[in-house]
Every structure is written in C-alpha cells, then in structure tokens.
Design a protein around this nucleic acid. Structure first.
Lengths: 218, 218
DNA sequence: AAAACAATAGGGCATTTGACGTATTTTACT
DNA sequence: AGTAAAATACGTCAAATGCCCTATTGTTTT
C-alpha cells in the first residue's frame, strides 16, 4: 500500500484525482493540500510515501514547492502533474527533485502504474515528456564530448592577467569599462588585448571571444 | 501494424525475441539482422518502421550502428535493448539518435507497449533507465540556467534577414564581409545590425552575439 | 648579473563601429 | 488596390577598435 498526498490549487481537480485513485487499493490518499503552503503545513502531521504535485499553481508553484519539500523531507518522492509540457518546466522540475512527470490527461490506471513505478525506483514520464527529456539531453552535446580536445589558456601562453582581461572582453565590456573594473588605464587594457590577439592569432574582440568559448574558458 | 527489424549478434536471442513478439498482431517482424553491418545491408531492401537494436555487439556496436542508420534513414525509429544500463551508454545512445531504451528482461507485453509508445512519438524507457536519464540531466546544472531562458528570435521580432545577419555577426565577420557574403551593400548590413541592436536592446556586436548564444540561436 | 617575461602606461593613425538621419524598392497582407 | 513591414541604400559624426611604436617597473629564470 502506497500512501499519497495530493497537491493542487484547484479543489475540483483535487476531488477528481482523489476519486479516480480511490478505487485502486494499491494506493491510499493521506491528504489533499490546497496549494504549496498547505502542502508544507500538512506534511508536519502526515508522512506519505509520495506526492502528486500540480505544476501550475498561484502563489507558490509546484517547482518551488518541490524544492522546499525535498529540502525538508528528501525521502518523499514527488511526481509532477501538468497540463502543459513546457521544456523549461520539465527541466526545472527535475532539478527541483521531481522523479516523475505526467500530463493530467493520463488514465487513472496509468497514473497508478506510474505511482508504482516511481516507488520502485523508476522515473515514469508521459510519452511526450519523455521525448522532451531526451531532446534536452541530446542538445547537450558538450557533455559527451572529450574534454581533451579543449585547449587550456596556458597552451596559448596567455598570462593570468590576460585571461582576466579576456573574461571581461567576453562579458562585452569596452576598453574603458575593463580599465575601470581592473583599476588600470584604458591604454593598458588595450595593450593586453593586443597581446591576446597576437597569441590567439585573431584580430577582433569577437574572434577572441569565439576562441575562448570554443575552448570553454568562459 | 508496426513493422520491425531486429538487430542482435546473438542468434539465440534473436529467435527468442522474434518468437516472443510474433504472438502479438500489433507488430510484424520484417527482418532479423546479425549485427550492425548486416542491419545496414538489410535496410537496403526492407524498410521497417523501427528497429530493436542490441547495444552490446562485437565489430560494430549498437551505438555506432544507430548513428549510421540515423544518418541514412533518419525516419526509422530505434529502440535500444541492453542487459546493462551503463550511464555513459545511455547517453551515447541518445546522442546517436535512439528514441527508446529497454533492458532485455522486460516482459514481451511491455516491449510491445513500448514499441507502440515509441511510434506515437514517445520515448519509452525501463524504470531504471529513465531514472538514470533524469540523473544525468540533473547533473548538468550548467544547462539548466540556459534552458530556463530560451527565447525564440521571433519573440524579439527579429526578421528572417536579421537572423541571417546576426549569424554572420556571431561568426565574427565585419560589416564589409557580411555585405560581401550576402550580396548587399555594407551600408545595408550596418542598417540591419542597427535594427537588431534596437530589438535586442544591445549596443555592440559582442552583446548581440551574447544574446544569440544565451538563447541558443547559434 | 643578465635575460626573459609580465604588467603597467602612453602616442599616433587608419579603420570599424554605433547612433542618428533619410529614402527607395520589394514583399506581404488585407 | 492600398497599406504595413521588410529589405535595400546612402550620409554624417563621434566613439571605439585594431595596429603600429616606445618605455618603465617588477618578477622569474637561467
């Protein structure tokens, strides 16, 4: 028997989900919370195995609620429910500590199956969500690439100060702004940048920054 | 009816899976390939909707096979099968273009369900695999910062041409070089860039490129 | 001690860039 | 058919940039 807490700002949906799940004896609903603050409050007296959490909530949304709950009760698993499937929300939810992510239109039997999968250490996701997750991963080719292929600033014989200057350049600062921030004269800043160009074999700020970025110095 | 190609180096497992799936009429096995090279060969004559691909294969492994097949036939969906669930393999598989990832001990009915989910645009994964995927994502916090703020060039009201120009700027080209490449006058290129600055609320090439990069337009 | 390098600072000059105009032609949409 | 938006082009000016040069001071290496 898996004990569950429901968190949603919409009383109607709350009752709805509750009813849908009540016919399954694999799960028991411990409490229904009206929004994030109520959830945090209810968790002082109840200790469910997991939570079904709506993402879109006023005041404190599901992501923030998840973050706080995970901090206080790390062992409670959280499954996000959402009508939307915005990419950034998915990622945010994962970062906040959610272990599952379903769209609200899933059939009750599916939801129960997902609940069980989650309690067994899985990460149930609606098909569309799972795909989005993969897409996010696929876009992060950086991770998969070899760090070996990156060159260190030292391999270009850049001095400490020059690296510092280059960072400012990459931040989009002008000579004068760099000079101000590093307490040197604009002429000196320019000189440094000239030397950097020499070492990197480039001829403009843009190209210098491009080299820095390619090698992941910034 | 979903048509399938099986790719495995082990003839016994090949027959096994084939038999397990044959009792379902949702799927039809078009061919069985003995390893990656055989799969590439068979794809010249058969065109299945998707492939079930073993990861661990001698000569050419499932990842490399997937990469090559995806290059030649991007529309064919590929589900990886593996006895292992090594994190790096998962990521490699995703990067290579796999859309699903199952462990071999799944029940035939689960496999068929996964096949259907995959053809409907989902990304079926065994629970443990899904969890690993989330973990990988969760570890890439760098990405997190960027993902939350993705905006489309259109949301800045950038026109097609302006996006094109911005790409050239990001490539480090000067006004004159951009003008040459796009067969317009340098004056026009400058005007476009001026307009881009307005729309992006920036005041230099460097800043403009920074915005473009933050939003992953380049 | 000498040599090499890093960091600092400046002079001068040609080019590029950014910001402000105006104006014509094409394209798109109603 | 008429209007709005986009793409095209030009002019001007001040500021920023890229590139040449020299020079002083301190640190490190040989």
């Amino acid at each position: 028997m898996i004990t569950i807490g429901l968190v949603d700002d919409n009383p109607t949906l709350l009752r709805n989900i509750s009813q849908n799940l009540s016919i399954f004896d694999e799960v028991e609903i411990l409490f229904k919370a009206n929004g994030g603050f109520d959830a945090l409050d209810k968790l002082n007296n109840h200790h469910p195995d997991m939570l079904l959490m709506d993402i879109e909530m006023p005041e404190m949304d599901g992501i923030e609620t998840t973050r706080r709950i995970k901090e206080l009760f790390p062992s409670i698993k959280i499954m996000m429910l959402s009508v939307l499937d915005r990419e950034d929300k998915i990622f945010e939810a994962i970062k906040a500590g959610a272990s599952g992510y379903l769209t609200k239109d899933e059939k009750p039997s599916k939801i129960v199956a997902a609940i069980e999968e989650l309690m067994e250490g899985g990460a149930p996701m609606s098909p569309a969500i799972a795909m989005k997750t993969l897409q996010i991963l696929r876009n992060q080719e950086i991770i998969g690439q070899k760090i070996e292929s990156y060159l260190s600033p030292e391999s270009y014989n850049l001095s400490k100060r020059e690296i510092e200057i280059l960072e400012k350049v990459a931040a989009g600062l002008t000579y004068n702004q760099i000079a101000d921030q590093l307490f040197i004269s604009a002429k000196t800043a320019r000189k440094h940048i000239e030397n950097i160009y020499q070492k990197l074999q480039v001829h403009s700020k843009l190209e210098a920054v491009a080299v820095a970025q390619k090698n992941k110095w910034v």
